[in-house]
Every structure is written in C-alpha cells, then in structure tokens.
C-alpha cells in the first residue's frame, strides 16, 4: 500500500468535509427550515438561531396518524416478506427441487417489472377482493418491494451454511421444518436482519402503491400524506419540512445502528 504523507491525508480529510457539506446541504436545509419558527418563510435564516419545535408539534398533530400508518404497514410488510422469503430461500438453496433454477431466474426477472405496471393490473383485482383502501392490501403490495431482494440475499447466504450442521439435526430426529426453525434461521440471523431492514425501508418509502391502491382517506402513509399536502397550495413549509425530517428518521437510525447491514445489503452479492 502506498504511504501517504500526513499533510496529504489532512488535505483529503478537508476535501471529504467539503464534499459532505455540498452533498448533504439539501438535508441540512430541510432540518434548518423545520427548526425555524414563522410560517411564511419568505426568507430563511442560514442557521436556526432561534430554533423551536413549533413546526414539529404542528406536524405531529396533523401527520401523527400517517406516521403510525406508515409504521404499521412497513412492519407488516417485513413480516410477510420474511415469512415468505426465508423458507423459500432455504428450499431453493438446499432441496434441489426441480425448477429451482427457473424460480431463481423468475425472481430476477421480477426486478424488471415497473411498480406502476403492477399497480395498473393489481387495482382491479384489489377492487374485486375488497383490498383497496385497506391496511392489509397495502402490506401485501409493499411486501413485493422487498421479496425478490430478500429471497436472493437469503438464498445466497443459506447456500453457505454447512450441510453437516443440518444433517446432524435430521439424524437426531428433527424433521426438515424444525431443523429449519432451530438451526437454519438462527444461523442466518445477519442475512435476515439485512433483508428485514431493507424491506422496512422500501415499504416505509413506498409512495406508488399508497397512491394507487387507496382512493379514500382511510389508509394514508406519510409519503402519500405529504404529497397531497404539497399538492394543495403550500403555505406552511415549516410543518412540511418537520414532517420530512420525521419521515427521514428511520433512515438515519438505520445508518447509525445498522451500518454494517446496510452496506451488506447494498453490495448484496452484486459485486463478487
């Protein structure tokens, strides 16, 4: 490895800080507006000198319900997605079923199907099944955002679990299902966390299914709620930005607590 001199390394750090400042400025500005009192905001101060939480109070009182909806839908999508993906990933990794290759290939192909096309066809089916304007309907649709990703990630991981470990359990009298639950799932903990995190993020960020599969105000995640709010003439940018900050919180938490898993998910086998 090349040894860089100390001044040069400091130079790099300075450049990195400048890059950060430029690229993160929009998010800073979001927080800045959210913290400044005053509804008109014809001119915004560069720094939130007299910061207040008034905007956040207004945001939570009007958007609290939507945030709760987003949370329920996203958690539901994680449960559905993992419940489907984990057993399937194991089956595809280990059982040597006929058609496994076709299924994996089909999973890859699903990435090509644009969400709006899915929504276009799903809408009429949802009308028939009474799933329009329901939390369950949105959970089921949002699970599709994470399923292919989770299936492929988990399968890649489960292929690497030593065969002997599972075989030993089978010899001890466990059937395939108990061996899966007691041995395979705990060993796949990291991959499960990564899949779950990303499915949560996808569902939390979902706007398209929320927009197309809901025709009333019954089910309104925060993305849809913010979109409708700015559709009307915006006067209260302070509250909009406060809502934006709150809706970005899951992303920020993930970045702090689960950075390792986020990085694993992004490279997720693509760079091998």
């Amino acid at each position: 490895m090349r040894h860089t001199s100390a001044p040069r390394r400091h130079g790099n750090t300075v450049i990195a800080v400048v890059i950060l400042v430029i690229l993160l400025f929009p998010l800073y500005w979001m927080v800045n507006i959210a913290l400044q009192p005053g509804e008109g905001l014809a001119s915004t101060d560069w720094f939130p000198v007299d910061a207040g939480l008034g905007n956040f109070r207004r945001a939570l009182s009007s958007q609290g319900g939507s945030l709760a909806t987003s949370l329920v839908v996203a958690l539901g999508a994680v449960v559905v997605c993992l419940a489907l993906a984990a057993p399937a990933a194991y089956g595809l990794a280990r059982f040597g079923l006929r058609g496994s290759r076709t299924i994996v290939f089909g999973t890859l192909i699903t990435q090509m199907v644009p969400g709006i096309v899915v929504a276009n066809a799903l809408y009429s089916a949802y009308v028939d099944l009474h799933l329009v304007n329901s939390v369950l309907g949105l959970i089921l649709a949002d699970a599709s955002l994470g399923l292919p990703f989770s299936l492929v990630l988990l399968r890649a991981f489960m292929v690497s679990i030593p065969r002997e470990v599972v075989e030993a359990a089978l010899v001890d009298g466990a059937n395939r299902f108990t061996a899966f639950v007691r041995i395979v799932l705990p060993m796949s903990r990291n991959a499960l966390i990564t899949s779950g995190l990303f499915t949560f993020l996808f569902a939390w960020s979902d706007f398209m299914f929320a927009l197309t599969l809901n025709t009333t105000d019954d089910v309104k995640p925060v993305t849809l709620s913010m979109y409708e709010y700015i559709g009307a003439h915006v006067s209260d940018w302070g509250a909009v930005m406060a809502t934006a900050v709150v809706s970005a919180v899951p992303a920020a938490i993930l970045l702090v607590l689960a950075q390792k898993y986020v990085a694993a998910g992004i490279s997720g086998g693509s760079v091998k």
Binding site: V104, T107, P148, F149, L153, G265, I266, S267, G269
Partner: peptide, 11 residues
C-alpha cells in the same frame, strides 16, 4: 435500485 442489486448476480 437496490432491490435488484442482490438479485442481479445471484442467478
């Protein structure tokens, strides 16, 4: 984008 990442090469 990410959905496809893992998917892309696992096949």
């Amino acid at each position: 984008t990410i959905t496809a990442t893992g998917a892309a090469t696992a096949g």
